[in-house]
Structure formats: structure tokens, C-alpha cells
């Protein structure tokens, strides 16, 4: 009887593509299963905002050559995208923690960086899906020229990844749903709504103008507006650099949290 060679560990290489893909796919499938519900809400509320603004203000030019509808459409896209990216990174992480399924992920051969990448990218993809749905709907009512599609895509991607990372961090940090919804109410909603989505910087009082310039979402809205409508306030490069810097910082924080096992390993 010849002894069979002992099974060898599967070589994973420098990056576990298959593991990241499996984790990524899980959250995308989960999102799509409830697509009717998860897309209907943001799409409807964006449409409401558009209608309410048209009816209550309507018929004015926000920036030279940019009517109200075209001005707020990019902001509405960013708002629903940011909200959805946050939610779809935070909820899976919090849910996995509370149901104890996080053990399955921590015991799989995934490095901390790979876990962060999979959660962030699935949240960001779901955010982009919401953003694109809102954008397509807006395009029915608002004239969008889309002069710079690549700029729009780049800023959209940055915004989605930024809010997905924020969601992941909140998901790791929160112990219960209370923490998640508190972060949503006190951080994500104000950042999303007071972002220059609905007003120009010039129309603001001095203090408010300064506050808006500290809001990273403002730069996402501005970049997306440049891509979709062709008009922007201030420099795009500064916004892009700031967003990339923030993504790197939050990414490092998320990586550190997962690597040290903060609130996920006892």
C-alpha cells in the first residue's frame, strides 16, 4: 500500500483574488435580491426633491447657463449614491458581527486588506448602482449634456468609495443598530444634504461657506456637476486630491481596525 502524499495548503499567491471575489459577490447578490426595495426608495425621494425644488423655486439660473434642474440633478445623484454606499458597507459588516458570521470571514484565508477591499468595493458598487438609477431617471426630466463623462465617473467613484469606507468603519465600530443609525443621522445625512447639492457657494453667508468647504461631499458634487453639466465652482484638481487623500486615510483606518481585530475579535 502506497502512502498518498499529504494534502498541501492551496497556494494563494500574493493576493487572494478568489476570496475577495466571493465576499464581494455575496454583498452584490444580497443587494440585487432586494433591488426593488433598495432602489425604489432613493429614486422616489430624489424625484420628490426635484419636483419640490422646481415648484418652490423654479425658473432661475443657479450658475450662468445652468437652470435649477440641471444644477441640483448631480447633487441628488451624489446624495443617493453616498447614502447607499454607506448603508451597503455598514449594514453587511454590522449584520455579520451581530449574527456571528464574522467568524467565517475572519477564519477564511483573507488578509485584512482584502477584507477591507471586498466590503468597500461591494458597498461602492451598490452605491454606484443607486446613483446611476437616479441619474437615468433625472435624465428623463432634466437636460444633461454630459460633456465630460470620464470626469463624472471618476468623481462618482471617489464619492462611492469614500462613503463605503465610512460605512465600513461605522459597521466595525457600532455595537448595535443604534450606533449605525446615529452615525447616519448625525454624520451622513448632514454631509450629504449640506454639500452644495442645492445651493451655490456664493449665495451662502460667510460662516456657512467655510463649513461647506470642509465637507468632502461638496467636492464630489462639484466634480460630478462638471462632468454632467459642464459647470463647476473652483478647482477640480484640489477636490480630486482631497478626495483621494481622504480615501487613503479612511482606508488605512479601516485596515488598522480589521488587522487589530477592533471589536471583531475577542
Amino acid at each position: 500500500m502506497t502512502a498518498r502524499p499529504a494534502p498541501l495548503p492551496r497556494p494563494l499567491g500574493p493576493f487572494n483574488w478568489r476570496g475577495v471575489w466571493a465576499l464581494y459577490r455575496r454583498d452584490i447578490v444580497r443587494f440585487l435580491r432586494f433591488a426593488g426595495e433598495s432602489l425604489a426608495g432613493p429614486v422616489m425621494s430624489s424625484l420628490m426633491f426635484l419636483a419640490v425644488f422646481e415648484l418652490s423655486i423654479g425658473g432661475v439660473e443657479m450658475l450662468p447657463g445652468v437652470p435649477l434642474g440641471a444644477f441640483i440633478a448631480p447633487g441628488l445623484v451624489v446624495f443617493s449614491m453616498a447614502h447607499s454606499a454607506y448603508e451597503n458597507a455598514a449594514v453587511p459588516m454590522l449584520y455579520d458581527k451581530m449574527e456571528g458570521m464574522i467568524g467565517d470571514i475572519l477564519s477564511a484565508p483573507l488578509r485584512p486588506g482584502e477584507i477591507v477591499l471586498a466590503y468597500t468595493l461591494s458597498g461602492a458598487s451598490n452605491g454606484l448602482l443607486s446613483g446611476v438609477s437616479v441619474l437615468l431617471l433625472m435624465a428623463l426630466f432634466v437636460d444633461l449634456a454630459v460633456p465630460h463623462p470620464l470626469v463624472a465617473l471618476a468623481f462618482g467613484l471617489c464619492g462611492a468609495v469614500l462613503f463605503a469606507l465610512a460605512g465600513l468603519i461605522v459597521g466595525v465600530w457600532a455595537d448595535r443598530w443604534d450606533g449605525y443609525s446615529a452615525a447616519q443621522t448625525f454624520v451622513v445625512l448632514p454631509l450629504g444634504l449640506l454639500s452644495g447639492a442645492f445651493f451655490t457657494l456664493d449665495s451662502l453667508p460667510e460662516a456657512a461657506r467655510l463649513a461647506v468647504q470642509f465637507n468632502p461631499t461638496y467636492y464630489v458634487v462639484n466634480g460630478l456637476r462638471y462632468g454632467l453639466v459642464g459647470a463647476a465652482e473652483g478647482s477640480l484638481w484640489f477636490g480630486a486630491a482631497l478626495l483621494v487623500g481622504l480615501i487613503l486615510a479612511l482606508g488605512a483606518l479601516a485596515w488598522r481596525m480589521i488587522a487589530t481585530g477592533y471589536k471583531i475579535k475577542s
Binding site: V60, L189, L194, F198, L204
Partner: peptide, 17 residues
């Protein structure tokens, strides 16, 4: 949460143009 949301709405519409 509803209180904050209504305040945000007020801020947006007060500031918008």
C-alpha cells in the same frame, strides 16, 4: 433623527438661492 432631518430641510431651503 426626524428632528435633525427637518432642520436640514429648513437649512437647505433657507440657503438655496
Amino acid at each position: 433623527a426626524p428632528m435633525i432631518v427637518s432642520l436640514l430641510f429648513l437649512a437647505i431651503f433657507a440657503l438655496a438661492l
